[in-house]
Design a protein around this nucleic acid. Sequence first.
DNA 1: CGGTCGATGATT
DNA 2: ATCATCGACCGC
Length: 210
Amino acid sequence: MSSHTALSRLITPADPIQGDCRRLDRAFYDRPAETVARDLLGRLLVHDTSSGPRIGRIVEVEAYLGPGDLAAHTSRGRTARTRAMFGPPGHVYVYLIYGMYHCMNVVTGPEGSGTAVLLRALAPVQGLDASTSGPGRLCRAMGISLDHYGIDLCGGTLWLARDDAPAPSEIAASPRIGVDYAGEWADKPLRFFVPDHPAVSRPPRAKKKG
DNA sequence: CGGTCGATGATT
DNA sequence: ATCATCGACCGC
């Protein structure tokens, strides 16, 4: 029937749309957030929507390292909002920011670790009309909202996949964006991106060091 | 540099 | 239950 059935074949090898394209499994996510973050660059984010498939290639991410990381939402303990981020790996943690934008994270590490990777920018691959640079625009273009809170990326209509494209030849790192309140954690190089890629969101300004 | 509004944590 | 505060952002 719908595109759903056809696109579900992306979970199998030798997909016609993107070559050898396969859904990432639980083990991929069950690793430290920083490791997953780097490994996510170049992977595909796929959303099989009622209006057709939307696919983008990840070019910018940020790692959030759990309750000890003062920039992470889990640093203030378990709340209704952070329940999914404390949950098992391979699930989605979405939150609403500034009352208007959504941000999508993939939960990493063992259950209870409270670690995740924020998806910040995609290179459009298929079905994407609007900008996918920046976490809010990424979710808007991909059709991701709180409806996706807590869903499993290892089954269903939203997932991450590998294909036969080569991994990025180089990975750049910088401090994370918008976490100046996080003390020394604000300076840690936990933002990863493909250098000079046009879809990478440009940091507002280089941070001045005293 | 300010809009915009739900979630949060403190408080009743 | 209610309230004041504050954003893991965006567009000017």
